[in-house]
Write a protein that binds this DNA or RNA. Structure first.
Lengths: 243, 243
DNA sequence: TTTACTTACGGTCAGGTTGACCATAAAGGA
DNA sequence: TCCTTTATGGTCAACCTGACCGTAAGTAAA
């Protein structure tokens, strides 16, 4: 009985999102061996017996990218019996957010097999493309990773305007311009947002409660008026659904 | 290798919510054997190797209650290595909604070990009580089920005003009064809602789009003016996060 | 029959929020 | 000096929200 019931493998798959040049992007790696050899897949690993899923996600993230303090949140558990031809693998998909510069440095450092794909989701479906290339078709993705990515983008969109996750995309939360925060929102929601109205919304949501405070410094741009820089204080807003 | 890696059990735990007498309630069963013998626990079962988590949830629900077409949604996957002293069990918590009358009939029919607890969550924490009894303390619950229930209530609250889940609490979606829908909202959110404003909100959200249509019939109450009865059409609203 | 009570339903009104848009400020470059 | 670019602030109408009132339609009591 012991063996007949304990026969699952548990895996973590990571959706590592970032915003590069105003576009929402996602990290994929090309599979080097069967099944789905040559297809693109989310980075993933098996969970060890003595660790939690969240710990396994952190560990995978640390091995892939030498980055700390990354936002990670459980997304959904995919458990179709035939999702992995090798055997019975239940996969817990997790959503992670890494600022682009840090991701870029990490990718440039090691000989990593990961590549950054622009991720768009609209009425015509999901589109993933590398720079100046045609979009991946759904068949180019391994396992059920197409569905996982779709759900991840939807979750991201649903949460961006009532949680703090937008700040996780910022290179430096202690010194950022409102423009950079706007860019994150536009990339995630995939639509233009009026800068003036956005500023007002951020003021009422974060200024008045002290979550964001202005800095002495200013951002010197190539052109145009310099932007004020702000700092995120540590008292974050809570979540509605998860822990 | 095969054995060292495939050593997980996967379980489903169900949060079966209902609204009874205007209160949000939850089904628990008293454990008859160790571990946590005598404590209250969510109904659960191990997932079979050849089924998905969602299918296991449906199967458990069908065995417990002879009810069909119940709303079920994945909540979160709990994976702490020490959450179950018997071994390595990863539990996928699912949120289910059953109308009270159907639940009551199902409970009265079979000799079921399940009982219906009023579930409240506020600033002072989680309170679960049977009729006219003191609230359960956190220590009366088995495993990490206290945390699971808290998360479930929060999820329910977060979703009730931008999804359709409130209708899943109704005894008969083809003939209901706006009052009964109001009661569901009040029970889930645990606060009073102005009936007039609620009516207006439902009108703009569901009437104009044709999701709800008025019926010829009226509800004859003991006292007061009879209420119009409405019918839910099949074109439901979508979800923001999950599938 | 009248009166009181209960519940359903519709409307008003002030305050807040949102989207569209304009005006001005502060920089650099032609 | 003028033009372009970007940041920042303000206006205004439309919409949404919560609080509240008035009325309609039924039952139960006087």
């Amino acid at each position: 009985m012991e063996n007949s019931r304990k026969a699952f493998s548990v895996a973590v798959d990571l959706l590592i999102f970032t915003v590069r040049d105003g576009r929402l992007c996602l990290l994929l790696s090309r599979r080097g061996k069967p099944p789905f050899e040559g297809r693109w897949a989310l980075p993933g690993r098996l969970v060890d017996l003595d660790e939690s899923v969240d710990r396994a996600a952190d560990r995978l993230l640390c091995e892939m990218l030498p980055v700390q303090g990354v936002f990670v949140e459980q997304l959904y558990t995919f458990s179709d019996p035939h999702r992995d031809p090798r055997g019975r693998v239940v996969s817990v998909a997790c959503l992670a957010i890494v600022p682009w510069q840090r991701l870029q440095q990490a990718l440039a450092g090691g000989e990593t097999p990961f590549e950054c794909f622009e991720a768009r989701l609209d009425a015509s479906g999901l589109a993933l493309c590398r720079e100046n290339e045609a979009a991946l078709s759904r068949a180019d993705l391994a396992f059920d990773h197409g569905s996982i990515i779709e759900m991840g983008i939807r979750r991201l969109r649903g949460k961006i305007d009532y949680t703090d996750i937008a700040f996780s995309f910022l290179e430096n939360p202690s010194s950022f311009s409102l423009r950079s925060l706007l860019t994150v929102h536009e990339a995630v929601l995939d639509r233009e947002i009026d800068f003036s109205n956005f500023r007002r919304a951020m003021r009422t949501r974060y200024f008045d409660s002290g979550h964001i405070v202005p800095t002495e410094k200013e951002l010197k741009p190539r052109r145009g008026r310099p932007a004020a820089l702000y700092r995120l204080t540590d008292n974050r807003k809570g979540d509605r659904n998860n822990a």
